[in-house]
Design a protein around this nucleic acid. Structure first.
Lengths: 139, 139
DNA sequence: TTGATTGCAAACGGTTTGCATGGGA
DNA sequence: TCCCATGCAAACCGTTTGCAATCAA
């Protein structure tokens, strides 16, 4: 599963035991446009602009649903969970000041080659987190 | 500040506005021996083996104190915060199954060289998280 | 002596759950 | 029609805070 899209979600829902609802459509549309890993509350406020009575339970329910089908990744940064609609292999830049997260496409970070660790661990993947100050915070 | 040690903490405390207590000594001793990033609760149970009335407040108080003087790093993994007594530059292996975290010394991961990102971010550091199944979970 | 630390309990904040109502397929 | 999803409120859980008593320096 790569980039989250409303189309892909609709397709997946049709025929399965999951249903599309207006709230879910808004949540997915918001997520597919999001660029800096929204928090659950970001999503909550976004849906409520369109559907003012949407509860947090619905938001978490939807986020966990998308997560469970592999269309969304969860990542803790700073003080809360953030949701990453990009499921292609990629890395991250995190601003130490404002907590903003930006995707770094995997081509921008050179390959580490085969990782050989001591012990007998089964290595599956690796990710790089680059830290620093983002352009707005660097002054 | 590099590796947490009781000696370094005692030195830092003497003369400053911070005081050593029996509880703090046990906590620091436990942390300096710990190898897989204990959670606050791990620490809590460890201290309580020696001082059965120790409260969680004391544990968090001490952890935050060590963190604030740069002798301990905090890292969210899985569902809770974990504390890393190793403040030298290093990377991590995380088990997807049991959540165990193991340090990877920085020599084991090849250098990424200068990281050049699009935009105008000020890059300070990077860390690599290797994921997979640890030797006990790989079956 | 003095002010930092302790234990306790209550508060907090993000996330989850239980349940009755509502709505998609 | 049949479940799944929703909204609400309460529960949960890790962490923080307020406070009076205690203890290190």
């Amino acid at each position: 599963m790569n980039k989250l899209s409303l189309k892909a979600v609709e397709e997946m829902a049709s025929g399965g035991k999951f249903k599309m609802t207006p709230q879910r459509r808004v949540i997915v549309s918001y997520l597919e446009k999001a660029t800096s890993h929204p928090t659950a509350d970001d999503v909550y406020f976004a849906v409520n602009k369109k559907f003012p009575m949407t509860s947090r339970a619905t938001v978490y329910n939807t986020l966990n649903w998308l997560k469970s089908v592999g269309m969304l990744r969860e990542r803790f940064e700073g003080e809360k969970m953030r949701y990453d609609p990009n499921c292609e292999r990629h890395h991250h830049f995190v601003c130490a000041e404002c907590g903003m997260v930006e995707d770094i496409s995997s081509e921008l970070i050179e390959e580490l080659g085969t990782i050989k660790l001591p012990g007998n661990h089964d290595v599956r993947s690796y990710e790089v987190t680059v830290r620093g100050h983002c352009s707005s915070c660097r002054d």
